[in-house]
């Protein structure tokens, strides 16, 4: 049987995931999007469909709507996306309680991402994992270097917490996070590459998938993050939205570097 397995089955086969992230406000994408063939660059559904056709493996929608109508607009968005898109997607932003998550699950979201709400109330992770399964719960962590330590930040990196990043991530895992989305606020927006040192430390310390975020500027940065840290997925926004990196080209480069992609 051993020999059969060696010859019959591929030895690996789990693809590294490429994840475009869309910022959404009041049901519309907010960051500039520069696709040539879009009829409506502000329509998250059309944008999402476009990315799925290009070969994106997964999508993240970050809702930054600040009004009390938020849940309703998010649910409508999720339904529209689920109707049109044939790849998995995650919704983040403003999820504070079980009822928020339940509404999004029923609308067709594959996963939810929680950030500040988990820091303020860590038990929310346990509750969500118990109610919906760990695979539904991504804990997003924004981190920044302060005096040689990595510290969890809130509100887009503006507010430092008391939490050390790695210990918070391990706590999130033990409470039932199914995946970690780690954004380096020091690297975010620099286009100088991912924080591979921290990502490697985190990826080695947990047994759940890690999504790298913050710093993507070139295709080589994606090669580097997968080769140097072995994270499961890499997320980026502007390099995809502005067409600086096309996903089919990126997949070709990763493939040429012997990195498993879809």
């Amino acid at each position: 049987m051993e020999q059969l397995h060696n010859t019959t089955f591929p030895t690996s086969g789990l693809a590294k995931r490429i994840v475009p992230c869309l910022d959404v406000k009041d049901g519309r994408t907010v960051k500039g999007v520069n696709f040539v063939d879009l009829r409506d660059a502000g329509d998250p559904v059309e944008l999402a469909w476009n990315y799925s056709q290009q070969g994106a493996d997964e999508l993240v929608f970050l809702d930054i709507t600040a009004t009390h109508e938020r849940r309703k607009t998010m649910v409508e968005l999720v339904k529209s996306v689920a109707r049109q898109i044939n790849i998995p997607f995650t919704i983040g932003g403003g999820i504070n309680e079980i009822a928020d998550a339940d509404a999004l699950l029923n609308a067709g979201a594959d996963k939810i991402s929680i950030n500040s709400a988990a820091v303020r109330n860590p038990k929310l992770i346990d509750e969500l994992a118990k109610a919906f399964g760990v695979q539904f719960v991504i804990v997003a962590v924004d981190t920044r270097h302060i005096d040689d330590r990595n510290i969890v930040h809130l509100n887009g990196g503006r507010i430092a917490t008391e939490l050390e990043t790695l210990s918070w991530i391990k706590e999130a895992e033990s409470r039932g996070a199914g995946e970690i989305l780690l954004t380096s606020m020091d690297h975010d927006g620099t286009k100088a590459g991912f924080d591979n040192t921290l990502l490697k430390t985190v990826n080695n310390a947990v047994h759940i998938p890690v999504i790298a975020s913050g710093g993507a500027g070139s295709m080589q940065h994606f090669v580097d993050v997968f080769e140097q840290t072995n994270v499961d997925a890499a997320l980026a926004a502007s390099v995809f939205h502005y067409g600086e990196i096309l996903i089919p080209d990126l997949k070709d480069v990763l493939r040429a570097n012997k990195i498993e992609v879809r």
Partner: peptide, 12 residues
């Protein structure tokens, strides 16, 4: 091998 097994995997 992380659990849950999450993502796009080859199917033979």
């Amino acid at each position: 091998y992380k659990v849950p097994h999450t993502g796009w995997n080859r199917v033979h």
